[in-house]
Nucleic acid binder design. Sequence first.
DNA 1: ACGCTAACGGACGGCACCGTCCACTTAGCT
DNA 2: AGCTAAGTGGACGGTGCCGTCCGTTAGCGT
Lengths: 230, 230
Amino acid sequence: MTDDLPHPLRSDALDNRQRVLAAARGLFAAEGVTVPMREIARHAGVGPATLYRRFPTKQALIAAAFAEEVRMCHAIVDEGLAEPDPWRGFRLVIEKICVLHARNRGFTEAFASAFPGAREFTSARERALAAVAELAERAKRAGHLRPDFVLDDLVLVLMANRGIRATTAAGQVAASRRFAALVLQALQAAPHHAPLPPAARLAPGAPGEPAGRGAVTGDARPRPWPSPRH
Amino acid sequence: MTDDLPHPLRSDALDNRQRVLAAARGLFAAEGVTVPMREIARHAGVGPATLYRRFPTKQALIAAAFAEEVRMCHAIVDEGLAEPDPWRGFRLVIEKICVLHARNRGFTEAFASAFPGAREFTSARERALAAVAELAERAKRAGHLRPDFVLDDLVLVLMANRGIRATTAAGQVAASRRFAALVLQALQAAPHHAPLPPAARLAPGAPGEPAGRGAVTGDARPRPWPSPRH
DNA sequence: ACGCTAACGGACGGCACCGTCCACTTAGCT
DNA sequence: AGCTAAGTGGACGGTGCCGTCCGTTAGCGT
């Protein structure tokens, strides 16, 4: 979070930087990453130029704002892997990740859509996926996870989870929790499953953002990718 | 679809109207309702004024464009209610509605978020919900649906379904189908359920659109509601 | 105490979209 | 064939956001 910078910042600069980060965290969590840069600046009590100097691109700001969440994500998968019972570990990871996403709308969006420059998120996601793959393998062998589970199902679940929206923050978490419980119920091995329809090629990190337009940059069409000009 | 209008349109006007509708259908389905009005006009080979004359507000265009889907929705719930086996009817409705939404991104958005002026959608949704409530009651009594299912769970599932995104149209349908199968697996009555976490107050038709900004009008913040000026 | 310079915020030009107005075109009736 | 009103598309003004420039402010080292 407070990674040391090339040259130490002046005290006011550092203060502003932290205010910007706090504002960004709050707004991203509540409204998603589509919140205008201006508003973050306004909310932090600084001018736009200040914000752009500290974080030359919105991606940089997003990455910095969600460093905490990325760490949580890593902690969760580590915790799951450490669990001796693989099915318990699997359940733990699914539920905790769902709740983590439910708590932070912006993080969900950033985590779901990977684009150049947000290595943090793609790597976090890859790591989470790898961990779940490992857990799934073990849980299948232990006979607790249904054998036709594929890793894409996790992506499916995470994408589905991001579609859930409640009126209040607490409600959001509660909804995700219930959803995760349902999913786990479905994924648990049972004596007789109805066979699942085949898995599909999903859009794990494609530019397919929640709503198409105005994903991060507030831009129009899903352009190739608008790398920051300079 | 081709509802008779107050005064019969001139032939060219009617032709244009239908071209606009076709373009809107295609673009809404593929890209969602956030597609700019201009682009629909361009795609239909008409000017913006023509489009705005036929459909003074974007809501009107959306409502007209999705009349077909609304009818399908009604047909689905009727079919489900007509089914003698309530669990079979329940499954049928869940799966078909998921697939219907998967086929049409714009409809999903319009259906999910109810706002003044889109009576068609809210009424369609209310009707679908009522039908599923009825089916659920019957299926519970028959012992096939888990007794702790609540109607909000359907909303939960539909919201979750809308979060799913695949790279291709076919993939989208396949993903939704698999998702629906998983959900139905979870909802099926079983000898021993883990108890579900409590249901939460969701945002059934709140302005909580898919991505917050630029939902329909391409507008900025979730304003109260930007009723079309005139 | 003082100056140097990093840091600040207001202002600017650009872009995309929206919804409306207006001078021309053209379908349909006599 | 000619008239007339419905219809059309291009142009316009407005809004919101973006990212950058520049004159001013105020930390910090001496």
